[in-house]
Amino acid sequence: MDMMGALLTQFAQMALVLGLAPLLTGLVRKVKARLQRRQGPPLLQPYRDLRRLFGKDVVMAENASWLFRGVPYVVFAITWVAASLIPTFATGLLFSWSGDLLVIIALFGGVRFAQALAGLDVGTSFGGIGASREVMIASLAEPAMVMIVFSVALIAGSTQLSTIAVFMQSDAVGLRVSLALALVALIIVAISENGRIPVDNPATHLELTMVHEAMVLEYSGRHLAMIDLAASLKLLAYASLIICLFLPFGLAGAASSPLDYAAGAGLWLVKLTGAGVLLSVSEMSIAKMRVFRVPNFLGAALMLALLGVLLLFVSRGM
C-alpha cells in the first residue's frame, strides 16, 4: 500500500506538471496582453494550439535525418523527467533520489544538446544561427547554474532537492548573503534558460535576434507540439525550482496525508501564479537585449553566484 501510495503521488506530480505547464504559459501571455491593454488570447489558448498541432501532419525537410524526427520526443521526455524530479507540492517523492539538483541541470543540458543538433540537421542558416547562439548562452548559464547549486548545496549540506527543501523550511537557514546572491543569479539564469525577454523573445519570428525559435524553425505538426509543450514544461520546472529552493513553505513532507498534499498543491498553485505574474511584469518593463550583450548579463549571474560560493568557502559558520 505504501509503495502504491508513493507511486501514485509520483505519478500525480508527473501528471500535474504536464497538465499545468501550458496553463502557466497561457497565464503569462494573458497578463502580458492585459498589461499592454490588449484583450489577449484566452487563458486556455496554449491547450488549443497544442491540440491543433497534434492533429496536423508533419511536414519535414527532404534531407532531414532520423535524428530530426527523434529529437522532439527526446526533448519532451527529458524535460518531463527533469520536471518530475523537482518537488512541487511535496518533498520525498518516490523517484526523487534517482537524481539530485546536478542531474536536473544536466538533464536540461541534454535537452539543449538535442535541440541544437536538430537545429543543425536540415542545414539551413536559421537553424545554425539558433544553435550557435543557444550554446553560447548556455556556456555561461550552465556554470552559473552549477555555482547556484553549489551555494545552496553547501548551505544545506546536500544536493538532493528534497533534503534542501526540508532544510530551507527549517529555522537553521537564517538570512544569508550567499543565498541572496544565488537567488538573483538563479532568476537571471532562469530567464535566459527559458528564452524570455531580455535574452530571447518567445513571441517572435523573423527577427535577427531570435535564438530558440530559430532553432526549431523547421519543425511542424506534432513535432512542434512536443517542443512547445517541452518549453512550457521547462518554464514551469524553473518556476517550481525557484519556489522550492527559496519559498518552500507549505511543502508537504515525505509521508503526509492527502490533505497535506492538497494544501501543498494549493499553495504551490498560488506561488506559481505569483511567479507567472512577476515574469509578465518584468517582461513588460524591459526591452530585449542585443545578443552580444547577453554574455554581460549572464556573466554577472556567474560572478554573483561564484561570489556567493567563495563567501561560503572562506567564512565558516555563517
Partner: peptide, 21 residues
C-alpha cells in the same frame, strides 16, 4: 509519448523542401 501520439494524434508525414523562413 511516441505510442500515445501515433495512436491518438496524427501520424502522417510529408517531405518538402526546407522552410528556412
Amino acid at each position: 509519448t511516441v505510442a500515445v501520439i501515433h495512436r491518438f494524434a496524427s501520424s502522417g508525414l510529408r517531405r518538402a523542401p526546407p522552410w528556412d523562413c
